[in-house]
Design a protein around this nucleic acid. Structure first.
Length: 576
RNA sequence: CGGGAUGUGGCGCAGUUUGGUAGCGCGCCUGCCUUGGGAGCAGGAGGCCGCAGGUUCGAAUCCUGUCAUCCCGACCA
């Protein structure tokens, strides 16, 4: 391939609208162009990378017995109405009508379609297990698309659905996918971590998210630094043993303390000269089942996901100040559980300390020596706190560490949620009809490309892991007008091509600086420079993008050295 | 959806306060020249100033509306 004929419009300046590195570099290096918010055209460079990632995904899916199919993007409303998600999915579903006024949507996911397929075609336990997957565009009308390909409204996703006869068999499918995902992201050269995750509104038990570790990640995970333990979880899901209060004494009489204009935990604690740990923080939430007061220890935050599950609601959000005032009779900052009526009181197990300080529902006054049971009655005591770095690991007890991650994949046990509502059943050996037990497993392919850049770049541009680079090698003749350089460069390209290396030659009539800058920006793992020295001596200069080191290599050895280097790079990145 | 900001040539921006010929840098085209880290000279092409109304002799500039894009938040099987 020749750069002179290849559409890779690089820019000298960083586009103003791009915020994160992967987005900036993909636009600047000529990989993508925006079409609308969260919708992009993938130029040849990006498409080559996508095809590389897809190739790896396909191999690993097929290795585990996955069968590739292709399902429609346009899906009929009836199926979504049947599953109940036409109403539940909300404004994130792209909806459209055909000329007859019939409702359709652009598929954000394919549970409905595939369950519809399987209910029609599978009727016997003999046909199970079945693993079907596709790599397809998906559509979600995100409230706020952002970060380029990281959170688009149109994106490429691999989704595999497993169909099993029972939980035990589902477990086998689940771990097949878990292992396949580990291999996929390792082969893509990514540093990642599978973490336990919340299963969301969909229910079910086991689910893991695969997180590519990067500062720009939208998700926060905690993990056990002890490798032999291996606990890791999304903070939405993470648990940690409750800290036992050591300052427990007999219950003292409830007292009022003046706390003028002291609204935050820290203000109250320092004003009263006590630790935030002795405070109870009371947060008022509104839900479709009425208001909820969530109580956590002063130094803790509420994990809203846990709270949603504890209360058994679908919608939950912090009540606005007016509503807090209506419910507690007082402005936010002085809410407390004592004397609170008409509100469900949920208390974190750690907030059940003796003689605590809490709001009094009266302005500028807090209660001292508040004791649950005596002064207020919790409706529910459970774990609703957000785990943070430093909390003990639930499995081995040593302090947890924290990291940010980009969710690139999720494996999920669906159970019979969809098979039941859509009537996907099979007959077992005894002739009994049972719902098929399902799992779903997604990989964000476009997001994986973005994540790879987030993890592999420097100030000059992208540094691709060679397994997913658009080209593995760029050959740069220093002067395109020098016939001898041109000949040598072409010869080198030919040899590499014959050896199966993906190579592009920068044959533009540009000054060498321009070509070097572009090569760094685009991120080819290996660069071969053909200058007058090379022509005279027969030694070629080979430079690795990752470490910037130059190596001189005789032309005769070049192909072997390149193959060697590429496989070494693969191993480095494989080590993850 | 709430808060904030921005829309001027392919990209990055100035000009808007105080209305009066639409500018700069990069990129692009032609020629000369140059060739180891985004060279130089000369000549050129390219803009409905987001869109629609309004005010005015006259609007990129003032007013009203609208759309789009970006950021923060909320949200995210």
């Amino acid at each position: 391939m020749r750069v002179s004929e290849f559409l890779m419009p690089t820019l000298r300046e960083t586009p103003a609208e791009a915020e994160v590195v992967s987005h900036q570099l993909m636009v600047r290096a000529g990989y993508i162009r925006k079409s609308a918010a969260g919708v992009y055209t993938l130029l040849p460079l990006a498409w080559r990378v996508i095809k590389k990632i897809e190739g790896i995904v396909r191999e690993e899916m097929d290795r585990e017995g996955g069968q590739e199919i292709m399902m429609p993007i346009i899906q009929p409303a009836e199926l979504w109405q049947e599953s109940g998600r036409w109403d539940v999915y909300g404004p994130e579903l792209f909806r459209l009508k055909d000329r007859h006024g019939r409702d359709f949507c652009l598929g954000p996911t394919h549970e409905e379609i595939i369950t519809d397929l399987v209910r029609g075609e599978v009727s016997s336990y003999k046909q199970l297990p079945l693993l079907l997957y596709q790599i397809q565009n998906k559509y979600r009308d995100e409230r706020r698309p952002r970060f380029g390909l990281m959170r688009g409204r149109e994106f490429i996703m691999k989704d595999l659905y497993s169909f099993d006869r029972d939980e035990e068999s589902l477990d086998v499918s689940y771990w097949k996918m878990y292992r396949a995902y580990t291999r996929i992201f390792r082969r893509c050269g990514l540093k990642f971590r599978p973490v336990e995750a919340d299963s969301g509104a969909i229910g079910g038990n086991d689910t893991h998210e695969f997180m590519v570790l990067a500062e720009s990640g939208e998700a926060l995970v905690v993990y056990c630094p002890n490798d032999s333990c291996g606990y890791a979880a999304n903070v939405e899901k993470a648990v940690s043993p409750p800290e036992r209060p050591v300052y427990e004494t007999g219950a003292r009489p409830l007292e009022e303390a003046a706390t003028p204009e002291m609204r935050t935990v820290n203000q109250v604690a320092s004003f009263l000269g006590i630790s935030p740990k002795t405070l109870i923080k009371t947060l008022i939430y509104k839900t479709e089942k009425g208001p909820v007061a969530a109580l956590v220890r002063g130094d803790r935050d509420v994990n809203e996901i846990k709270l949603i599950r504890a209360v058994g609601v679908i919608n939950l959000e912090l009540a606005p100040p007016e509503e807090v005032e209506r419910i507690t009779g007082c402005a936010p900052g002085f809410a407390g559980p004592v004397g609170l009526g008409g509100v469900k009181v949920v208390v974190d197990e750690e907030a059940l300390m003796a003689n605590a300080v809490s709001g009094s529902n009266k302005k500028n006054i807090h209660f001292v020596n508040v004791n649950a049971g005596r002064d207020f009655k919790p409706d529910l005591v459970t774990d609703i706190r957000l785990v943070k770095a430093g909390d003990p690991c639930p499995s081995c007890g040593i302090p947890l560490a924290e990291a940010r991650g980009i969710e690139v994949g999720q494996v999920f046990k669906l159970g019979d949620k969809y098979s039941k509502v859509l009537g996907a059943t099979f007959l077992d050996e005894k002739g009994q009809s049972r719902p098929i037990v399902m799992g779903c497993y997604g990989i964000g392919v476009t997001r994986t490309m973005a994540a790879a850049i987030e993890q592999n770049y420097d100030q000059n541009g992208i540094i691709w892991p060679s397994s997913i680079a658009p080209f593995q090698v760029v050959v740069i003749p220093v002067s395109a007008k020098d016939i001898r350089q041109d000949e040598m460069a072409r010869r080198v390209c030919e040899k590499l091509l014959k050896a199966g290396v993906e190579v592009i030659i920068d044959d533009r009539n540009e000054r060498p600086g321009v070509k070097f800058k572009d090569a760094d920006l685009v991120g080819y793992p290996v660069r071969i420079t053909v200058g007058s020295k090379a022509v005279d001596s027969g030694d070629l200069e080979l430079r690795l993008r990752r470490d910037g080191n130059n190596i001189m290599i005789p032309e005769a050895d070049l192909v072997n050295r390149v193959l060697e280097i590429l496989s070494e790079d693969q191993e480095i990145t494989d080590a993850g």
